[in-house]
Write a protein that binds this DNA or RNA. Structure first.
Lengths: 208, 208
DNA sequence: AGCTCTATATATAAAAG
DNA sequence: TCTTTTATATATAGAGC
């Protein structure tokens, strides 16, 4: 008589897993599950999500939808009346906490920088290893150029944000505090971000 | 004889929900579920996660761990140049246009993803040895494609930023920028990979 | 690191309050 | 809208490849 081949799924306490191997396995499985859920949410409800996960090992996994071009397009399309729309939305108490978004943005910038540096390092490595091949020069230069552009853009973005903040502060101080009380949706503790869509990676992919 | 009080959970197709009411309910439930999963992943594996969701109604929901302040502190500590400006931005004003910030955040997340992919591609390349020519290998093509996308996106972003900056400048030409000229976003940024504190946000919001 | 399998823990669709 | 209930669909722990 055969004994049970498996005990099946066991209940676990939601607390940091101590056994390293377990942790790694669980991280991998649950990350997949999370991304899958995100992609389903995207599809079912037609929303945009972005998720970034920093693994214990320092790796970054991400998942996002839609792609940059779409966001950029929408951004441009909305630009003409961004101001009024913004104010309207804010007045309607439909938005998240700004300080937190700022923090998040800074964090993202920080991480982007990190990733960029890693990219550059790898690129450099590759370049050094094959620099004797003349036909590789173009693509290498392009890489560097792209990265330069990215850096410049990031700097511009930061400037823009500062200007915006400054301007909005000026507006709100002599009129109404359009932000009123804390409009942090969750009661102030957390904030998340995620995006996804069913596409290239199996059911999805991942964003960070 | 009583009939079944409920059919129980029914299987659904993962496709955009058409009935508005259903969509709203599903969005709410699944968003909660997603955040819960994220929080469990945080706790179980001690990782950092950020999720941003743009609802169909235009609302923004976010979830993040650790708390934004901690992330910001870490970030500021590592970026002395950003320190003063960031503190001003965050501490003094605590505001900016949310739709814009969200857009930018979204953009950041996507860029981060792109960079990550590129990083991985380069990494992969290096691992495979340097015997492949960039125009021959699929992975290389993806890399090139990503770079092209990045370039296009960056150009669009610059355009957008220019337009916005112009507009905002015109509107706030009477106010002084407290941010001065320091816009260096580069710092000796190192990758954070340490274990995080045992967070006790527990999965707040008391959802479920 | 990723996949399989089983048995069981969880998430959640529908309906109702 | 948010909750609760019910029955069922899914996710996933543990073990092995």
């Amino acid at each position: 008589m055969a004994k049970k081949p498996s005990l099946g799924r066991q209940k676990i306490k939601i607390a940091k897993i101590q056994i390293k191997n377990h942790l790694q396995v669980t991280f991998s499985k649950r990350r997949s599950g999370l991304f899958k859920k995100a992609s389903e949410l995207c599809t079912l409800c037609g929303v945009e999500i972005a998720i970034v996960v920093f693994s214990p090992a320092g790796k970054v996994f991400s998942f996002g939808h839609p792609k940059v071009e779409l966001i950029a397009d929408r951004f441009l399309a909305r630009n003409p009346n961004l101001n009024s729309t913004s104010l309207h939305l804010v007045e309607s108490h439909r938005l998240a906490s700004i300080p937190e978004l700022n923090m998040q943005l800074m964090y993202m910038l920080n991480e982007l920088e990190t990733e960029k540096k890693r990219s550059e390092a790898l690129d450099e490595m590759r370049k050094d290893g094959r620099s004797q091949f003349w036909w590789e020069a173009p693509i290498e230069e392009l890489n560097v150029h792209e990265l330069e552009q990215l850096k410049d853009s990031m700097e511009e973005l930061k400037k823009t944000i500062a200007i915006q903040a400054n301007k909005l502060f000026a507006e709100s101080s002599d009129s109404i505090s359009i932000f009123g009380t804390n409009n942090n949706i969750n009661g102030g503790v957390d904030h998340y971000s995620g995006a996804s869509h069913v596409q290239s990676y199996g059911y999805v992919h991942g964003m960070m």
